[in-house]
Design a protein around this nucleic acid. Structure first.
Ligand SMILES: [Mn+2]
Ligand SMILES: [Mn+2]
Ligand SMILES: [Zn+2]
Ligand SMILES: [Zn+2]
Lengths: 163, 163
DNA sequence: CTCCTTATTGAAAATGGTTTCCATTACCAA
DNA sequence: TTGGTAATGGAAACCATTTTCAATAAGGAG
């Protein structure tokens, strides 16, 4: 990741400018972290990573940037019920596939799964259509998550972090 | 709802005592509100209702009671992404059926639906089984929610309360 | 390149739902 | 009735997130 001159040609710069947003170091750094590290990072996770490289990017900017990115549909804000939001790239240069989440309530590990997505999405679409008609709703989004205990946490006794 | 002498014979008292919990006025009042009013109440909603009848039941007790009730599986804690938890009776004397939620991001109205539950539950069970095997998880719970705009909010222009 | 407008920023304070503390109260088994 | 202890309420603490506001810097115009 070259420094000074990497500004101005990221894959997302076009979309970004097109919406009237300025390209700043903070925003660049956040996007950088999101695409290099895996998903499901909290604002704090992101802040720490960004801060280690650019110590004068503040926490507020992290939140504000994530907000903008969510607004643009470039980032998904996730809620696994542990009191802090998580963020993941909606689709990067490599185009992350649509997936759902399996969350361990013991250690908060999150698994992306795509195995059963097709059937799920089928049913979902069908359900959404039915619900839209019956309740006259315009459905924009859905959340499907499974909660449980991972292999390791199951063995360590049934203690459950709750959620 | 008779006053003083209704203590001691609620449908839930048995279960409650069996687990070593004491039966108190606060707990009784919370359960009362949950079963008389519909579901999806926030802790504050519940506090206000309880407080209007028993002004010396504190906010803390509401939270603590809801926690206990969740622990016993008598109440479900719901998260619709608006920053406050909601609660609903898991199954009352009338035995509320399992259902999923349709949430309006405009006015926060929540609709319980059971229409497509059967197909959903079928697929869910299947998916859970697959996931458990593949990832060696013990799945305890799932969340399925649809977000969108209700009839009214759709007409009032596309403003979206976000979530 | 330089200037200028104004979007963006960082630090600190505010917010708001929820939890913790701790001295006091009141269930309820014996 | 009584004693041990679970439960309580009020205030303070917590903690992720948001707001405020003066200072800064992106980037189009010239
Ligand atoms: Mn994911
Ligand atoms: Mn419901
Ligand atoms: Zn785990
Ligand atoms: Zn609405």
């Amino acid at each position: 990741m070259p420094r000074g001159q990497c500004r101005g040609q990221g894959w997302w710069h076009g979309k970004f400018r097109g919406c009237g947003y300025r390209i700043t170091l903070g925003r660049e750094a956040v996007l950088d972290v999101l695409s290099s590290c895996g998903g499901h990072l909290s604002a704090e996770d992101i802040f720490i990573k960004v801060h280690s490289k650019y110590p004068n990017v503040g926490f507020t900017t992290i939140y504000r940037t994530l907000d903008v990115l969510c607004g643009l549909g470039m980032v998904c804000k996730l809620d696994f019920g542990d009191g802090r939001a998580r963020y993941e790239l909606a689709e990067g240069p490599k185009g992350a596939r649509h997936h759902h989440h399996l969350v361990c309530t013991g250690c908060n590990k999150v698994i992306d799964y795509t195995d059963f997505i097709d059937e799920e999405v089928d049913l979902l679409r069908q359900t959404e259509k039915g619900l839209e008609k019956k309740y006259n709703f315009k459905i924009n989004d859905h959340v499907i998550q499974f909660y449980g205990l991972c292999d390791k946490c199951r063995k360590e006794g049934g203690k459950d972090a709750g959620f």
